[in-house]
Design a protein around this nucleic acid. Sequence first.
DNA 1: GTCTACTGTGCAAAGAATTGCATAACAAGT
DNA 2: ACTTGTTATGCAATTCTTTGCACAGTAGAC
Lengths: 180, 180
Amino acid sequence: MALAHAIMTALLEDDLSGYELARDFETSLGFFWQASHQQIYLELRKLADKHWLSKRAVSQHGKPNKIVYGMTRAGREALAEWVFSSTRNQAAKDDLLVKLYNLNSDNSSHLSGEITARREEMMRRLYLYEKIRRRHYSQPETLPTRRKGVYLALALGIRQGEQFLAWCDEALVLIATARN
Amino acid sequence: MALAHAIMTALLEDDLSGYELARDFETSLGFFWQASHQQIYLELRKLADKHWLSKRAVSQHGKPNKIVYGMTRAGREALAEWVFSSTRNQAAKDDLLVKLYNLNSDNSSHLSGEITARREEMMRRLYLYEKIRRRHYSQPETLPTRRKGVYLALALGIRQGEQFLAWCDEALVLIATARN
DNA sequence: GTCTACTGTGCAAAGAATTGCATAACAAGT
DNA sequence: ACTTGTTATGCAATTCTTTGCACAGTAGAC
């Protein structure tokens, strides 16, 4: 049920269409909960059927029309309640680490390549994170409560990201010695 | 397809039954790829049907009989090939972070509790990690290639785990100030 | 004897997620 | 005119994962 709640969380402050949500998911909440547009559109319809979201068509000029969703009172209540539910231990699924268990001299250069690619992706992401932090969260203690939570998610992303970069460097060095 | 490959990876060195695999998944590879026993049993049967795994019944005394699976030549080849496939960007789904986006004075003490619980779980896990590292991976440079890969997965787990602990402390402090 | 815990394997239904495809309005460039 | 790119929404099939249940043998405690 968490996708539904992630979507509602994203709609807490702004009403958004499926397309806008899907795009936002690539940059903010989506860092902590990925979803494809198919999933999002389907879930939005389900949530509207449940009356946790309201739905309205918006005509646009210069662009196709869109359907904008917003939180209802029932939705807000359901979301608030969900926060109190017990959190299941998270996913933790990473192909790359499973692949590393299979490291050998044949695949070491391929795996180095994968790690390098991941490193670069993480660099880009960290750059974004840092930009957001500087811009909106430079003084976390003074933020209103809800924003403190958002800051903390960001802070974890930054910590983990930086650690990941350091790990990539360690890994690349160690794998390089394995190639001989 | 990655569950199949995670299972085969676990079977690279030892032949195991579904039960043993499920148990091992809770402590080693399972740190990077979680799976329930239902999933594992099903996947094992599928893999045996595909002839990527061999299957043999083993009678035991003092315990129910079991079915032990082992890698076949075809399985090893398929696994080796899979390592070269492109790795999709990983899951990244964490309820707790979505919940943090909903932080407010009502739920702050609940969320502190969740974070505390996570922190303790991570402490236990780190303790395990460190034990394994000291015991088997104290000198990574001298390990045979494959073991270097396993070490690297462990090293990432340790780095991320330590960072997570630090983050929990940061979060608990910040949330405590939010409660007022 | 009965209860609890551990070992061991499995089915079935529901829910979540991926993959591939399909459609369509409009803008801007060639 | 034609192609490319962005905005915008959706269906269908398949695969993956979770949840709940079921069965069964053995050991040890009470």
